[in-house]
Design a protein around this nucleic acid. Structure first.
Lengths: 258, 258
DNA sequence: ACCATGAAATTGTCTGAGTTATATCGCTCG
DNA sequence: CGAGCGATATAACTCAGACAATTTCATGGT
C-alpha cells in the first residue's frame, strides 16, 4: 500500500529536469558520483540487491542503469566479483552524457584545459574542411545562428544555444561523421564558457565579430582564413574561462581526499 | 522442458567470441544491423514483446540491449511510439563498440577516409604534445611496442596489437584525457589497415622505420619533428588502405556532396 | 473549428524465482 | 612444500508475468 503511493512521489522527485526515466536518473546519479571522484576506479559498487534496496528501486531499474554506465565505459561488471569502476582511461570522455555529468559541477581545471586543447586541435581543421565542403544549407544554418547570437544577449539561454548551434553547424559542414560526433564536447565547452563568464567575469569583449570572421572565411571558401579565425575564436574562449579564475586553495576534491 | 534444454545451447551459439552476455550479443547484433544500414534512421524497431519473442529471449534481456544502444546514441525509445533508430548525426561514432560494429564488415569508403582524416588531424598534434609531456614510463611503453613490431611479423595478431599499442601509448603520453579516449578509433583504423593490407595489398614498404622516427622525436622532446613524423606515418597508412582500391567513381566525400 | 476527454498501445517498473559464471578455498597428488 | 584440481559460495545474469505510466489518437462536446 504505502509503497505504491510513494512510488509516484519518488519518481517525480527524481526526474528533476528533462524526461528522464527512472533508470536514466539512476545512471545519471551514479555517473556523476563516478566522474566526480566520489567512487574511484577499482571501487566495487554494492551488489544489485543492496544497491537497488538502498535506492528504493527495483533491481530491474538499477540493472538497466548499470548497463548504461557500462556502455559508456564507466563500469564493468562480472559475476562473482561485482560491478567495479573502470580506470579513467576506459571512460568514454566524449560521450555527451559523460561530458554533461563531468560538467554537472564545476569541472576540474585540468580537464577543462584538456577539452580546450582538443578544441584548438579539431575545430580549426574542421572550419578549414567546412570552407571546402560546406553546402549552402549548412552555410545558412551558420548565418541563422549568428543572427540568433545578435538578437538575443549571449548570456541568455537562447544566445548560448545559438553559439552552440554555430559551432555545431561548423562541425556538420566539415562533412566528417567522426568530427560531427565531437559536437557534444564542443557544446559542453561552449556552454560552460558562457556560464562561467556570466558568473565570474564581465564580458571581456564582444565575441560576435570573431564568429563573423569564421563565417565569412567559410562562405568565401578560404580554408586558411577559416582555420586562423577559428583558432583565434577558441583561444579567446579559453581565456575567458581559465585565465581569471580565483586562485582557490582547494575547493572540492583535493581537500576531501586522503 | 524443451525450453530449458535449448536455453544453454542458444546462449552458447550466440556468444561467439569474447565473454559477451546475452544482452551484449543482442546489442551487438542490433547495433551491426543499424550501423550497416539494414535498419535506417527513423525506422521503428519491433515492440519489446514481438522482438524478444522473435529472438527467443526474455523481455529483460532485450530491454537491456536496447538500453545499451540508446546509451550509444543509436536509438531512442519513448512510450507509445516505440524505439526508433536515431539520425546518424546522433550516433556516438567514436564509441569503441559502435566503431567495432562499423568495422565488422568492410566499412564504407567514405567513413574510412573520414576516420583517417580525423587521425591526420589529431595524432600529429598528440605526438607533439607527447614530445613535451611524455613520462619515461610512457616512453618505455612505446619502445616495447616497437620491439613487439619487429619481433613479430606485422601481419600477425601480435604484430597488429603491438602497432595499436604504439599508437595507444602515444595518445596516452599526450596527457590529455579526451585525446586518450580516441584510442579506440585509432586502434580500429590501425587494425583495419593491417587486415586490409594483408588481404589486398602486398607489403608496400617496411613501416617500422617510420614508427621509429616518431619515437625518436618524442624521445628527443622535439614536438615539430614528432608532428611531422606522425603525419607522415598516418598518411602512409591511409595510402595502404584507400589508394589501391577499385576505382569507384568518387574517392571520398567531395563528389557525394552537391 | 477547437478544446477536452478517454481509450489504446507501448515502454517503463516491479517482484520473485531459477541459472550461470567465476573467484576462492581446500584437497589431493607430485 | 608447491602445483593442479574440484567443490563451493557469491555475484551477476536470465526468465516470466503482472501492473503502472506516458503519450498518441480518435471522439465527442462546445
Amino acid at each position: 500500500m504505502s509503497s505504491k503511493k510513494s512510488s509516484a512521489a519518488r519518481a517525480n522527485a527524481r526526474a528533476r529536469r528533462k524526461s528522464l526515466r527512472l533508470h536514466g536518473t539512476i545512471a545519471r546519479d551514479l555517473g556523476v558520483l563516478i566522474v566526480s571522484g566520489r567512487y574511484k576506479p577499482g571501487d566495487i559498487l554494492n551488489g544489485e540487491i543492496d544497491a537497488s534496496d538502498r535506492l528504493q528501486v527495483s533491481r530491474t531499474a538499477y540493472r538497466e542503469a548499470v548497463r548504461i554506465l557500462a556502455a559508456k565505459g564507466l563500469v564493468e561488471s562480472r559475476p562473482k566479483v561485482g560491478t567495479r569502476v573502470s580506470p579513467q582511461a576506459r571512460w568514454h570522455m566524449l560521450d555527451p552524457d559523460v561530458l554533461s555529468w563531468i560538467f554537472e559541477f564545476e569541472p576540474d581545471d585540468t580537464l577543462l584545459s584538456n577539452l580546450f586543447e582538443l578544441r584548438k586541435i579539431v575545430e580549426p581543421e574542421a572550419a578549414a574542411l567546412a570552407a571546402l565542403r560546406r553546402t549552402n544549407e549548412e552555410l545558412e544554418a551558420m548565418e541563422k545562428a549568428l543572427q540568433g547570437m545578435t538578437t538575443h544577449t549571449l548570456a541568455s539561454e537562447a544566445g548560448r544555444l545559438a553559439d552552440q548551434e554555430f559551432h555545431s553547424a561548423m562541425l556538420r559542414a566539415s562533412g566528417n561523421a567522426f568530427i560531427v560526433s565531437l559536437t557534444s564536447g564542443v557544446g559542453a565547452a561552449v556552454s560552460w564558457t558562457t556560464i562561467f563568464k556570466q558568473r565570474h567575469n564581465p564580458l571581456r569583449r564582444d565575441p560576435i565579430p570573431d564568429h563573423q570572421k569564421v563565417y565569412e572565411a567559410v562562405k568565401a571558401s578560404d580554408p586558411k582564413a577559416a582555420h586562423a579565425a577559428m583558432l583565434n575564436l577558441v583561444e579567446l574562449a579559453q581565456l575567458d574561462t581559465t585565465n581569471s579564475r580565483k586562485p582557490k586553495i582547494a575547493k572540492t576534491a583535493t581537500a576531501a581526499r586522503s
